[in-house]
Write a protein that binds this DNA or RNA. Structure first.
Lengths: 107, 107
DNA sequence: ATTTAATATTGCAATATTACGATAATAATA
DNA sequence: TATTATTATCGTAATATTGCAATATTAAAT
């Protein structure tokens, strides 16, 4: 118990849920919003901006990375994270398709 | 620890995360898809269709209900659940706004 | 009134998530 | 090469989520 039974669902359903899970924390929403507003992005800024400890921010960044949403490039000792545009578009399309495919025909 | 620090985020960020959390489980994705395909919907159908125990389905339905996505009306001893169109549209708009407001300008 | 069928609630075990202190790794700078 | 600054990883505590058996609730049907 306590484990999601992923094997009984389609891969599309599992993927949709996994993407949603990444968006299911306000810190990750805030991180995405903040990165998009900056020209570049340095992780320390995020720690100051958001108010969670550095390891916690690092963990959240990792969750976002896992679904391919972050491109990171080192600029000297600093790390510049930014959003992968192509992947972002993909996710937007997935959500849009999901929302529009649900059609309500009862009650 | 282990509690999300909601107080350090904006209500918009918290709401976004909360909605995403409901979509962050394949069973709930499957439930929404199934309901939308049916004329009506009875919980037992869902139990048969999805393959989780009846109390588990009931719990998932409750999560979906919490964000106002389900309208339910009893038809005799059966319960007909359906998706609240207005609320659904609202959520679609929120997601769309979120995705389009993120603009990538680095790297 | 009993029985039956459908859904909800309770209680609990297993696992996942969130958060952070301590520490490691990495690379620029003195 | 030591120091410093930035980010990652490890270990751990607290809380949340998932899932189900047992049971309660509700209302139709007998």
């Amino acid at each position: 118990m306590g484990v999601t039974k992923t094997h009984i669902f389609s891969s599309a359903q599992n993927e949709m849920a996994q993407i949603a899970k990444v968006l299911a924390h306000p810190a990750r929403i805030a991180i995405l919003e903040y990165i998009s507003k900056q020209e570049g992005c340095i992780c320390t800024d995020l720690v100051d901006e958001i108010g969670l400890a550095q390891p916690t921010i690092s963990q959240h960044l990792n969750e976002i990375k896992k679904i391919g949403l972050l491109k990171g490039s080192f600029e000297g000792k600093n790390l510049c994270y930014c959003i992968d545009e192509e992947r972002w578009q993909e996710l937007q399309n997935s959500f849009n398709a999901f929302f529009t495919n649900i059609n309500q025909n009862c009650c």
